[in-house]
Design a protein around this nucleic acid. Sequence first.
DNA 1: TGTGATAGTCAAAAATTGTGACTAACTCAG
DNA 2: CTGAGTTAGTCACAATTTTTGACTATCACA
Lengths: 144, 144
Amino acid sequence: MSSHRRPGLGVLAARLLFAVQDELYERLELAGHGRVTRLHGAVFAHLDEDGTRTSEIARRSGRHKQVIGRIVDDLEALGYVARRSEETDRRAKLVIPTDRGLEVLRLSDEAIGEIEARLADALGEDVYQVFDHTFRAVLDELAD
Amino acid sequence: MSSHRRPGLGVLAARLLFAVQDELYERLELAGHGRVTRLHGAVFAHLDEDGTRTSEIARRSGRHKQVIGRIVDDLEALGYVARRSEETDRRAKLVIPTDRGLEVLRLSDEAIGEIEARLADALGEDVYQVFDHTFRAVLDELAD
DNA sequence: TGTGATAGTCAAAAATTGTGACTAACTCAG
DNA sequence: CTGAGTTAGTCACAATTTTTGACTATCACA
């Protein structure tokens, strides 16, 4: 078996994404946030500590605002975020993390940070830094 | 705006995946394969030229075999793959790309190859090679 | 031979995504 | 100041996708 083709950049990206997500959500579950799923990640990943608009989250995550709106409904019911109208634009509503939401943000940053630290440790601090730097350059290059 | 946190490894991976997919499916559409969607990618990405079992595709892609079975139904109806019973194990069926399916495999490899070549050109051949190599090392490291 | 595991499929339920329409509020040219 | 066009968000409905459980056929192996 395993006569499969050498994985290209797309498959590498998918594997990395799944590997990171697997570890992240496992840790969130252990920390008592088992109700938070990958779906909610689209919001958490693009949510600032001081709040972000629904439409901005939609834009950043590349999903429809209806989908984001529904995920926010969910997170609101679970007590992770609250909605507050913006004062400068009364159409808009800020999605703001609650204390519980802030904890998820903190735990997520911590989990990702640990993964990165583990990789830096295994591959070499300098090697990993170059990797991270090149990764961002790759994304900049593909953004056109 | 844009006061968002520095994206971690997970967000980087997601962006890379989407960027690669965007370009890949755009090219497939231009080549007359507009009916092939990201959904089908789970099969094509793990399909060998000489055929692969449904369950092996499911294992490699991390999806349920029912889902893969349905995608294969789709691809079969579109004329991209055929099913053939294995001789060594009569329970199993090989999913085999048709000529049309082989063309998609070729176009996909070509598209990814061009993206990689473009990146190597922009960032430097040696820089990109190190990046690619480190990427695979990262995945090996996370596989544990 | 017979017990347990594996490959694949079917069918129904649940979850997620996409579409179109709608209200409210903002922008800005005239 | 006003009205046309745009944008933020939501609702309701349709379509798609995923999940769950059950089932048949086949294999592996003690």
